[in-house]
Every structure is written in C-alpha cells, then in structure tokens.
Design a binder for these strands. Structure first.
Lengths: 218, 218
DNA sequence: CAGAAAAATGAACGTCGTTCAGACCACTCG
DNA sequence: CGAGTGGTCTGAACGACGTTCATTTTTCTG
C-alpha cells in the first residue's frame, strides 16, 4: 500500500480537474491553457503530464464531472413525474442546466480528441446514462415501441432537444431567442406526446399536458 | 478601374478559399494549417493576410460557400413538394448533404471566432436563408401559427433536425446509428405533421404522409 | 539509512497563427 | 515614356502554445 504517493497523486488530479473546470467555466474550452491550469493547481507545467496523459485527457475528466452533475439534475427533474410531464421536466431541466453551466456544457460537445479519434468508453457510458432518464417516460408514451426501437426513439428525442437547446444557447445562426426556448421545448414535448397518442383529448396547442398527466399506457 | 490588381486579388481570394475548403474537406477544420493553405494556393504564408483578415475570416468564407451549396440542395429537395412531404425531403436532404460533406458541414458549426464574438452578419444571413425553405411547408401544416410564432417554430424544428443529424454524424455520444437516421427523421416529421393536424386519418406510426399529401390548410 | 523508483520541475523544443521590413509590381501623372 | 507612389508579395522572425526530458527532489523499500 503506497498511500502517501497515491494520496498526493489523487489530490493533484483532483486539483487539476477543479482548476481546469474553473478555467473552462470562466473562459470556455478555447481559453484553457496548460500553464494557467498548472499554476492554478499549484504544480509545475510538467506536472500535468504526470497526472494525465495530456490536456485532452484532463478535459475528458472535466466533462465526466459535468456529466455527473447534469445527471443529478435530470434525476431530480424527473423524480415523481411520469410520461409527458417527466419529458417536459427533463427537457427544461436540460435547458436550464445548459444555460447555467454554459461553458462547461459547451465543452461537453465542443471537445474533440486531438487525433480525431473517439472518446474513451468510460466517458461514453456517462453520456449513455443520460438516456436512461428518457426511456422510462418515453416507454409510457410509446407503449407500442419495443426495446430496440425505444432506444432509437430516445436517442432521437434527446438529439432533437439537444439541438434546440444548443442552437439557442450559442447565440449565432438559427437559435431560438433565449426566452422562447422553454415554451418551444414544451410545445415540442406536447407534439411528441400528443402525436404519439394520436389525438390528445385536450388539443395539441400548448400546455395540453399538465404536470400530473398520467401516461397513456397505464 | 484598377482591373489588374483587383483581378489578381480576387483570384488569390478564390484560390485560398478553394484550398482551405479542400483541406477542411480532407482533414476537418482542426487540421487546417495556414502554411498548407498558402502553399496549396500558390502564395507565400503572408499572402493569406493580404487577402483575408486572418484564418477565421478565410474559414467564414469557406462556410459561406458550403451554406450556398447546402441551400441549393435544400431548394432542390423541396421543389414540387408541399407540407409534410416537403418537410421530409428537407430533413433527409439536410442529412444527406451533411453526410456527403461531413467535414465541411462540421466546420459550419464547429467554427468559433477567435475572440468568441459573433459571426458577421453576412454569414448569419446565409444561415437565415435556410429557414426560408422551412417556413412555407411548415405554414401549410400549422395554419394556426402567425408569422412570428411560425418563425419560432421553424427554428425549433430546424434545430431539432440539426440535433438529430449532428449527433448521429459525430459517432460519439448519443448519436443514432447511421442507418437509423433517415427513418427516425421521417418518423419525426410524421409526428410533427401528424401531431399538428391532431389525429392524422391514416395513423401516426410511419409513412402516414405520402409524397403527394396535400397540406391541411388548402 | 542506503538504494531504487516515482514524481516534480522548468527550460527547451517543435509547431502554430500572425506580423513586418524590405523587395516587387501595377498604376498614375508630368 | 519614366519616375514616383502606394498597394502587394515574401519569408524570416516573433510570441504563444502543448508537450518532452534531463535533472533534481521526494517517497517507498529492504
């Protein structure tokens, strides 16, 4: 048991992740500098490379931390909600987390590996975990979808919501104005839920599904 | 009329844009190197900075070229189609253009200005032009939406489709498998079109709207 | 405590975008 | 036509960056 070394090593890794996260949160991923992170974390420049393979590796760990926090937020949003209400809470919870942690959230999707290769599996599984929150309410709304098709549909809706949030938050191009995002997300979920149920009783315009709406399949 | 100078200047600009586009298409935006572009275009390194403000500026012009080509593709896709059929053709046309020009298409959305500022207006209007293709078919399907709300809804659906395409094409994270993208897009458009019409006569599962389906509002 | 192994250090390296002083060239006007 | 003028081209030089590495320092082991 080499406690002393391992303790220091883990402390350094945690310091570096924290320092990098702070720099990204402040100035965005593009403003991340190895020298800044090292000095913030209180180690020499080369120390980064004893704790992590390279800056990419460090960013991946920051992203894993961000993913965890987002997962917590989504879990809280979906708690005690079902069907359309859960989908709405997840969508708006996603949008709010993204807005409140814009630079860290951007880093999740802006970051590219230096060699263009894929992200490591351990980070990918962190992303996949987010889908879990979606499948249950979606299954309630789409009772006709089997496991495989349900997974695809969950990815589709996640990607669609992500696109709306993403384009709205980066203020360029075709994004929705910030105050229009959440209403549009709710309208979108209404269409998804209402369309799947083929003719919601209370119409499909807006707010058709209250927070307490029970899923169609139960 | 300083023809000689202006001719050479425009020729150099065109060469540089073409060279940069080729490099981006081959290796992605991250692989773009000022020295490569200059040597490809047959000018010295510094020549770039007599024709463009900086590399960002050059990339913006490559992106404008890409936007134009995508606009042409979308116009062709929507031609002679209305309502849901037009939306479907636009979505799949978008997905195919993205897949066939992956690196150039990625550059459209990956690129960030060096100072973090917004893209110039002349490029933004190129993006806005894409929305025009959406509004007409969307208006046919959503006859209840006014001009302002229609614009918002168009942005929402564009962003949603973009999100699905974008996450599918970058093979990491939560993207749809490539062969599942177009079916999911079509299912999505069905939900959008069917949901808006509140109970399509032929059910909302899949392929509910044939190519010749007339918009609901006429 | 001595020897070995791991980690920390920061100067140095290679690469990048950008700049700039000088060479070059196209245009103007006497 | 020909000298002056001002834009353009050139590539060496610059500063910033991520990464490496020889060296020193710290930690573990017997």
């Amino acid at each position: 048991m080499a406690t002393r070394r391992e303790t220091r090593r883990e402390a350094l890794r945690a310091n570096l992740i924290e320092a990098a996260a702070r720099r990204i949160a402040e100035g965005g991923l593009a403003a991340l500098r190895a020298r800044d992170v090292a000095s913030d974390a209180g180690c020499a420049l080369g120390g980064i490379y004893t704790a992590f393979k390279d800056l990419d590796d460090l960013v991946l760990h920051v992203n894993a931390r961000t993913l965890e926090r987002m997962g917590d937020r989504l879990a809280e949003a979906a708690r005690n909600r079902r069907g359309g209400a859960a989908l709405k809470a997840l969508a708006t919870g996603y949008a709010r987390f993204a807005r409140q942690n814009r630079n860290l959230w951007d880093a999740l999707f802006d970051h590219r590996m230096a060699d263009g290769g894929p992200s490591p599996d351990w980070l990918l599984s962190g992303h996949l975990a987010l889908l879990e929150y979606l499948t249950a309410p979606l299954a309630a709304i789409h009772p006709e979808l089997s496991g495989k098709a349900l997974q695809l549909r969950a990815r589709s809706y996640f990607a669609a919501v992500h696109g709306m949030v993403s384009m709205s938050l980066q203020r360029r191009y075709l994004g929705l104005p910030e105050d229009a995002l959440e209403p549009e997300l709710e309208a979108f979920v209404d269409v998804v839920a209402g369309g799947a149920r083929r003719g919601a009783r209370r119409g499909a315009r807006r707010g058709a599904l209250g927070d307490r709406t029970r899923p169609a399949g139960t």
